[in-house]
Design a protein around this nucleic acid. Sequence first.
DNA 1: TTGAAAGCGGTACCAA
DNA 2: TTGGTACCGCTTTCAA
Lengths: 349, 349
Amino acid sequence: MNRPRVRLRDIADDLGIAVITVSKAIRNHPDISKQTKARVQERIRQLNYQPNWAARSLATGKSFSIGVVVPDLVHPFFAEVVKGISAEVRAEGYSVMVASSEEDPAMERQQIEFFLGRQVDALILASADPKIETVDLIQSRGVPFALIDRSVEGATCNFVGVDDERIGHMATEHLIEAGCKRIAHIRGPEISTGIGRVRGYMAALAAHRIKVRPEYIVSRDSSDTRADTSGYEAMKRLLTMRPVPDGVVCYNDPTALGAIKAIFEAGLRIPQDLAVIGAGNDRYAGELRVPLSTIDQQHQTIGQRSARLVMRAISSEEPLKPKTVLLVPQLIVRESTMRKARPSLQPTS
Amino acid sequence: MNRPRVRLRDIADDLGIAVITVSKAIRNHPDISKQTKARVQERIRQLNYQPNWAARSLATGKSFSIGVVVPDLVHPFFAEVVKGISAEVRAEGYSVMVASSEEDPAMERQQIEFFLGRQVDALILASADPKIETVDLIQSRGVPFALIDRSVEGATCNFVGVDDERIGHMATEHLIEAGCKRIAHIRGPEISTGIGRVRGYMAALAAHRIKVRPEYIVSRDSSDTRADTSGYEAMKRLLTMRPVPDGVVCYNDPTALGAIKAIFEAGLRIPQDLAVIGAGNDRYAGELRVPLSTIDQQHQTIGQRSARLVMRAISSEEPLKPKTVLLVPQLIVRESTMRKARPSLQPTS
DNA sequence: TTGAAAGCGGTACCAA
DNA sequence: TTGGTACCGCTTTCAA
């Protein structure tokens, strides 16, 4: 059944040379002759040799794997990020171990401990925890590391994400330009993304001299991890207010999904009665009940850049300076905010 | 920066006992005294000892990781499956390495080779390839292994999935009962799930003495991996037919998403003019343009059961008989197929 | 109940 | 250009 693996040793004996020579030949070490390398390569193919990674790890002290912890694997945004990371590191022979924290700081901590115990060569984290303890823990271990999507206050480490304040600003301004007068916000949790977007929302209103009504900022039920159902509840609350908002900036696309559901249930039209905008540009955002306007966050790029950052750190001799990569969000306009006839078709008065 | 790890050796020296004693104590080996174990445990906590997995792997021949290859990580269905697997194996100290084949057999092959090279202790695969070569390859390596979601003809190996014929049958019958007379099918690819669901669709029609119109079975563009956009195209084609269908059974939820978009664009109503049903009960299926009726496939359970299957195989001495776990699909009725007023409100004539 | 020795399959250092 | 030797940290076998 499980026939014994081919070892370096077997190839060496076979060729009548030393193990170490084969080892070097495989890794294309400069001090082996072309001829020998060719012979070795030949034999490797014939015997279908595969290096033993445990042995290699033990000898080099590297595990050739990186750990990725996200709050929710099923969220299309994080799934895209993971895909981006995976694609990027695979090219260098690295594999990705994933875990989901389910938006729970304690669980996140556990998953990280687990990966550190497994000696991952790097860690990439979208943290569910605004506190710095977890980041400190990781850094005290000296593992190359990057935060993504959500920054942590006071942390000096690699970060790849989008300017959240800009997202909130952009989304809100878009609704203002679409003619909304009473813009509400379903805000996210008390982490950098949630906080930044609220800030951007308020800044945009201020910039247009629109008064911020605190009651128009509602938060999703914090006990609920599922953004869509909690977006639904939050929107229902907004709909009881008088006057009813005519535009809503949602924390992210799943939240917008829930909001849309509540709006339809109330018998209102989107975008005529109420315009909706999300954030994330998740895969299915264009196919919703009403195609959803959103702010693109470059999910795949976040994965790619963070992966590159930690890979560089892995191969570097001395510790590198932490780097912050802030990607530029981009407005994607779809039906859910198209309140005016398109200018090209029928100029508004 | 990277202070040297604590080793078994350090603990042993510290306590004035032998390395092997510590090793046994850690693994709760029966021949170590309670007292010694307690002392060791104590010291381990104090020094924050973490075993070196590379060393352990090398000595035991196990890698304590399992590889999971799915066609698309961003697809909520597969994401749920991965989550289920991860949760299940984590408890036993195993980690999950993931890769996406992007629905490409060649890429799938590559990812599998990669994982085999990394000596995963087990492999779980939702194959993009209907041919048996890949399965044979895996089995020739003697790695514990399970296919999920999609079976492969001729393969004798573990399989965990849903009865696809039953899915097709159930969905179609539901539309018949909802009063649809001209039921079309947007079929999936030429793999077990696609084939099984078509078969179920035809069987259900036959059972109700409805003639199958071949032109009502359209396939998504095979060159397209994105089910939603290809569902859209397929539906557009169906809408050009005369008579226009009044019901459509979609291969899966993303396909239904695309179909719904096309239907709305054509100015038709769902479900009054055209009822739509999907499969998968993906996370956002209830929040779509029209809440989508679907067939639940127990995604999390698929992950869990497949994980248990391979974990058992890993810990078993002799090879186990391949097992097939067929889960029972379940109809989820939502708005997209509610054509009649609800019986409780207004009995139909 | 405890421990000594050998070995898992590689890599690095240094000598030939 | 090639290779001997030691060692990475843990587990298994068998003896004390």
